[in-house]
């Protein structure tokens, strides 16, 4: 399943109240400024984690200094992991330096960190079950 959701409200905030089973609320903090967008990808398996076009769901949220939040509904029960980056210049890429180190803010569910690279799917994994899930994460710059 692959869905591409774009939230672009007049306020620059997407707001929905998680209520139902399968709903996932994502709260992304630590955003340094309101330039560009916050790009969110949700993965449902280790073998698809951080792949090209292998997300279960993806969101583009208008950036906002501090925090943005979004809700994705109707996700099947299972194990997921989220990666996020702040596409401040709007080029739809995580910009990097000549060693491939991110030059824009990024983060993962569980605030998982890898050593000199992304964390493992397991380190970022969380469960969506019978209850609505809430994931808080902070971007690092």
């Amino acid at each position: 399943m692959y869905r591409y959701l774009v939230f672009l409200t007049a306020l620059g905030i997407s707001i929905a109240a998680p209520a139902a089973a399968g709903d996932l609320e994502i709260r992304i903090g630590g955003i340094s400024n309101g330039d560009g967008r916050v790009m969110v990808a949700v993965f449902d398996a280790a073998e698809r984690f951080m792949g090209e076009e292998t997300q279960t769901a993806a969101l583009m949220l208008p950036a906002r200094k501090g925090m943005v939040r979004a809700v994705i509904g109707d996700l099947p029960a299972g194990i997921y992991a989220i990666s996020v980056y702040h596409d401040a210049n709007g080029n739809q890429e995580l910009d990097t330096n000549m060693l491939g180190m991110p030059r824009e803010g990024y983060g993962f569910s569980n605030d998982a960190r890898g050593i000199a690279g992304p964390p493992s799917f397991q380190a970022a994994a969380f469960e969506i079950g019978a209850d609505p899930a809430v994931v808080d994460l902070r971007l690092s710059y």
């Binding site: 991110p102 990024y106 605030d111 960190r113 050593i115 710059y141």
Partner: peptide
């Protein structure tokens, strides 16, 4: 303390 997000962190 988790691994550093970047050297500058």
């Amino acid at each position: 303390v988790p691994p550093a997000a970047s050297p500058d962190a």
